[in-house]
């Protein structure tokens, strides 16, 4: 009897864990060089989850827990050398400007009239995502594809929320830069960039404001 109920709990856990396999794979596939590595990463993640399933507090967010395991496995095993990290996590002394582009250009980038152009831009974005430094890419994927909050992403990666925000900002800036450049090449954007720069708001002030707002 006990055995049966244990078995049922285990089976339910297996089913629920498997229901996140595609989501985990989507992120893994963008983080790993090839499909085999991505599958290994997903398998290792879920095996770890199964092995420590008794530590998982029922009723809490399984998806969030699984992604935390995935990012841990990835950081400890799959992430490449840390050279690029050291470079890109340096203080934001020269923030990539929120390059000013016209509303028309942005509209053209967002919904080009021609289908061929749309698919060109999509392909360009895909390439840009691939070229993003891994730490930036992971944050962009967690927040944009998995809709993690900044705090969830920070917990998953064991970094401060401010680091999540700055990686996200810079990662997106890089994607946008590639997109705007491509838009120019395709005649969708005019050479209208201006030098004004709007770095992200002071993070402390932001947190404080947010805190005040929620009280």
């Amino acid at each position: 009897m006990f055995f049966r109920s244990t078995r049922r709990t285990d089976d339910a856990f297996l089913d629920e864990a498997m229901s996140y396999a595609d989501a985990l794979h989507g992120v893994a596939r963008r983080m790993c060089r090839n499909e085999a590595l991505a599958e290994d990463l997903v398998q290792e993640t879920l095996l770890k989850a199964i092995k420590s399933r008794e530590q998982f507090a029922a009723g809490t967010n399984l998806r969030s827990w699984l992604f935390r395991i995935l990012t841990n496995v990835w950081v400890s095993r799959y992430r490449r050398a840390s050279l690029e990290r050291a470079t890109f996590d340096a203080p934001d002394v020269d923030p990539i400007a929120d390059g000013w582009v016209s509303a028309d250009t942005m509209r053209n980038l967002r919904e080009p009239e021609e289908l061929a152009v749309a698919s060109l831009l999509r392909a360009e974005l895909e390439r840009a995502l691939e070229l993003l430094p891994e730490d930036f890419r992971m944050v962009v994927l967690l927040v944009d594809a998995q809709e993690f909050s900044y705090e969830e992403a920070a917990a998953a990666l064991s970094v401060p929320t401010g680091t999540v925000m700055s990686r996200l900002h810079r990662g997106r800036k890089m994607l946008q830069k590639v997109l705007v450049e491509q838009g120019r090449a395709l005649g969708l954007a005019k050479a209208e960039a201006m030098a004004d720069s709007t770095p992200p708001a002071n993070l402390e002030a932001f947190r404080e404001k947010k805190l005040r707002g929620t009280k």
């Binding site: 595609d22 794979h25 989507g26 992120v27 596939r29 963008r30 942005m106 509209r107 980038l109 967002r110 919904e111 999509r122 974005l125 895909e126 995502l129 962009v140 994927l141 944009d144 594809a145 998995q146 809709e147 997106r172 994607l175 946008q176 997109l179």
Partner: peptide, 16 residues
Amino acid sequence: MLGRAMKASVSHLATS
């Protein structure tokens, strides 16, 4: 809207 469109594109790219 561009930001949202890019978010959606990234999300689409990470659907496999």
